[in-house]
Amino acid sequence: NQESVVAAQLIPINTALTLVMMTTRVVSPTGIPAEDIPRLISMQVNQVVPMGTTLMPDMVKGYA
């Protein structure tokens, strides 16, 4: 089963992602794949992401 990127903390809107903000977990439905974490660093979220929420492609500016 593929791991997806999950918020390790509350991420406010327009925050640039850092490694410490993200963790990985096997979730359903699947979100952004864990191997894309290096690509996500410094990208901004376009909404508030509560802790434990799976990051979906449409939540990250410039990802999709």
Rank of each mutant, 00 (worst) to 15 (best):
N1I: 14
N1M: 15
N1F: 15
N1S: 15
N1A: 15
N1P: 15
Q2Y: 10
Q2R: 03
Q2C: 11
Q2E: 15
E3W: 08
E3P: 06
E3M: 06
E3Q: 04
E3S: 05
E3D: 11
E3I: 06
E3R: 04
E3T: 05
E3G: 04
S4M: 03
S4V: 02
S4P: 01
S4W: 03
S4D: 01
S4L: 01
S4Q: 02
S4F: 04
V5Q: 01
V5A: 10
V5T: 04
V5C: 04
V5S: 02
V6A: 06
V6F: 03
V6T: 10
V6Q: 08
A7F: 02
A7W: 02
A7E: 01
A7M: 03
A7D: 01
A7G: 03
A8Q: 06
A8N: 09
A8C: 06
A8M: 14
A8Y: 11
A8R: 14
A8D: 12
A8I: 08
Q9Y: 08
Q9M: 10
Q9A: 06
Q9E: 14
Q9I: 04
Q9T: 13
L10I: 07
L10H: 15
L10D: 11
L10A: 08
L10K: 07
L10W: 15
L10T: 11
I11A: 00
I11R: 01
I11C: 02
I11N: 00
I11W: 02
I11Y: 01
I11F: 01
I11L: 12
I11G: 00
I11D: 00
P12C: 14
P12E: 11
P12W: 14
P12S: 13
P12T: 10
P12H: 11
P12A: 10
I13P: 07
I13C: 14
I13Y: 13
I13H: 10
I13D: 12
I13F: 11
I13Q: 12
I13E: 14
N14W: 10
N14A: 06
N14P: 01
N14L: 06
N14T: 04
N14I: 03
T15Y: 05
T15G: 04
T15P: 00
T15Q: 07
T15F: 08
T15H: 05
A16C: 08
A16F: 09
A16N: 04
A16D: 04
L17Q: 00
L17T: 00
L17D: 00
L17R: 00
L17E: 00
T18D: 04
T18N: 04
T18F: 03
T18R: 06
L19P: 10
L19Q: 13
L19M: 08
L19I: 05
L19W: 12
V20Q: 04
V20N: 07
V20K: 13
V20P: 05
V20T: 13
V20I: 09
V20Y: 10
M21Y: 08
M21D: 15
M21A: 06
M21P: 00
M21L: 13
M21V: 03
M22N: 00
M22H: 00
M22Y: 01
M22Q: 01
T23P: 00
T23G: 15
T23I: 13
T24R: 13
T24V: 11
T24Y: 12
T24Q: 11
T24K: 13
T24M: 14
R25E: 07
R25Q: 12
R25C: 06
V26H: 05
V26D: 15
V26A: 11
V26Y: 10
V26W: 10
V26I: 09
V26P: 11
V26K: 04
V27E: 04
V27R: 09
V27G: 05
V27I: 06
V27A: 14
V27K: 08
V27T: 12
V27N: 05
V27Q: 09
S28E: 15
S28M: 06
S28K: 05
S28T: 14
S28V: 10
S28H: 04
S28Q: 15
S28G: 07
S28P: 02
P29L: 05
P29H: 08
P29S: 15
P29E: 14
P29C: 15
P29T: 10
P29W: 04
T30K: 06
T30V: 14
T30Y: 14
T30E: 14
T30S: 14
G31A: 05
G31F: 02
G31D: 01
G31Y: 02
G31Q: 04
G31S: 03
G31K: 02
I32S: 01
I32M: 03
I32A: 02
I32Y: 02
I32L: 06
I32G: 00
P33D: 06
P33M: 10
P33I: 12
P33Q: 08
P33G: 12
P33E: 10
P33N: 06
P33A: 10
A34T: 08
A34R: 07
A34C: 08
A34P: 10
A34D: 06
E35K: 07
E35V: 14
E35C: 15
E35N: 14
E35S: 13
E35I: 10
E35M: 11
E35F: 09
D36C: 14
D36G: 07
D36Y: 15
D36W: 11
D36F: 11
D36N: 11
D36Q: 15
D36K: 15
I37N: 01
I37H: 03
I37S: 05
I37C: 04
I37L: 08
I37T: 05
I37E: 03
I37R: 12
I37A: 07
P38A: 04
P38F: 13
P38L: 05
P38H: 07
P38K: 05
P38T: 08
R39E: 04
R39S: 12
R39C: 13
R39L: 09
R39T: 08
L40F: 02
L40P: 00
L40R: 00
L40K: 00
L40A: 01
L40C: 06
L40Q: 01
I41K: 06
I41F: 11
I41D: 03
I41P: 03
I41Q: 08
I41L: 14
S42Q: 09
S42Y: 11
S42F: 09
S42G: 15
S42M: 07
S42C: 07
M43G: 13
M43D: 04
M43H: 09
M43A: 14
Q44N: 11
Q44C: 12
Q44R: 12
Q44A: 10
Q44K: 09
Q44G: 04
Q44V: 11
V45R: 00
V45W: 02
V45L: 09
V45E: 00
V45A: 06
N46H: 12
N46K: 15
N46P: 02
N46V: 14
N46Y: 11
N46F: 09
N46L: 12
N46C: 11
Q47Y: 10
Q47W: 05
Q47I: 08
Q47S: 08
Q47T: 09
Q47K: 15
V48D: 13
V48C: 15
V48K: 10
V49T: 04
V49K: 00
V49P: 00
V49L: 08
P50N: 12
P50T: 15
P50Q: 14
P50I: 04
P50V: 11
P50C: 12
P50H: 08
M51S: 06
M51G: 04
M51R: 11
M51T: 04
M51Y: 09
G52V: 02
G52I: 02
G52N: 07
G52L: 09
G52H: 13
T53V: 12
T53I: 13
T53D: 10
T53Q: 08
T53A: 10
T53Y: 14
T53N: 10
T53W: 13
T54H: 02
T54A: 08
T54C: 09
T54G: 02
T54R: 03
L55C: 02
L55K: 01
L55V: 08
L55I: 13
M56P: 01
M56Y: 08
M56K: 14
M56I: 13
M56D: 10
P57S: 12
P57D: 07
P57K: 09
P57W: 13
P57I: 06
P57G: 13
P57T: 09
P57N: 11
D58N: 15
D58R: 13
D58H: 14
D58G: 11
D58L: 12
D58Y: 14
D58C: 15
D58I: 10
D58P: 10
D58V: 13
M59P: 01
M59N: 03
M59D: 03
M59V: 04
M59F: 09
M59Q: 05
V60K: 01
V60E: 01
V60P: 00
V60L: 10
V60H: 01
V60Y: 01
K61I: 07
K61V: 09
K61Q: 07
K61N: 08
K61P: 03
K61A: 08
K61S: 08
K61E: 04
G62P: 05
G62H: 10
G62N: 15
G62F: 12
G62I: 06
Y63W: 15
Y63M: 06
Y63E: 03
Y63K: 02
Y63V: 03
Y63Q: 03
Y63N: 13
Y63R: 02
A64E: 07
A64Y: 03
A64H: 13
A64L: 14
A64P: 10
A64F: 03
A64G: 14
A64S: 12
A64D: 06
A64Q: 12
